[in-house]
Simulated assay, not measured.
Amino acid sequence: MTEKERELLELLEKSGRMSEDKIAMMLDVTVEDVTSMIQKLEKERVIIGYSTIIDWSKVNTSESVTAMIDVKVTPKRGVGFDEVAERIYRFKEVKALYLMSGTYDLSVVIEGKSMSEIARFVSDKLSTLDSVISTTTHFQLKKYKHDGIVFEDRDEDHRIVVSP
């Protein structure tokens, strides 16, 4: 990977909506070079997709519930954790799945319409998988920061400065 490609990735990671013209200017290359680099990186699946971060708590629709589920599993000979991870990430409720170090093996992030919907997912789908030994579910109460973006609008500090 070239240095320009690395710089391009850093720019896109900060703002996926940046125009190719602006990127070309910032990297000191032509627009055609930027287009070519992006196509190459997409083809190689270095760039997997583009997403927008939305603060759903500010949208006047029914909010969803997000849960992080720690899962202890028995890895299978020859495939390790990959086989059970693939079975888990195929569920439509699963938004993210990570192999972890520590007490639990997998961390699953899921979204549902209610806590009871998430409970049904855990009891009916996740816990019934052969390799799953145990689960611990944590419900997200408030999102402060996600992917480097702070969600809370903080006003200026209005405290009075006290000095000796």
Results as ranks from 00 to 15, higher is better:
18 M>P: 08
97 L>I: 02
97 L>E: 01
161 V>Q: 07
75 P>S: 15
156 E>M: 14
99 L>F: 05
83 E>A: 14
130 D>H: 11
15 S>C: 14
56 W>C: 03
82 D>I: 08
129 L>D: 13
117 E>M: 05
126 L>M: 08
36 S>G: 11
101 S>C: 04
117 E>C: 06
76 K>H: 06
70 D>L: 08
125 K>A: 07
148 G>I: 04
142 K>T: 01
82 D>V: 14
146 H>L: 13
157 D>Y: 02
101 S>P: 06
159 R>M: 15
32 E>H: 10
65 V>I: 01
5 E>H: 12
53 I>K: 13
78 G>K: 12
114 S>V: 03
31 V>S: 11
149 I>K: 14
91 F>D: 14
18 M>E: 15
10 E>V: 13
42 E>F: 03
74 T>D: 13
116 S>V: 09
20 E>M: 07
114 S>Y: 07
140 Q>W: 10
156 E>T: 09
105 D>K: 00
98 Y>V: 07
151 F>T: 12
38 I>T: 06
68 M>R: 15
58 K>W: 12
63 E>D: 05
118 I>G: 00
142 K>V: 11
135 T>P: 05
47 I>L: 13
69 I>M: 02
85 A>I: 10
21 D>N: 06
14 K>N: 12
130 D>Q: 09
145 K>P: 02
25 M>C: 04
79 V>I: 09
47 I>Q: 11
144 Y>P: 03
106 L>S: 00
104 Y>D: 01
54 I>W: 03
142 K>D: 05
127 S>I: 02
42 E>D: 03
90 R>F: 03
152 E>L: 10
69 I>V: 08
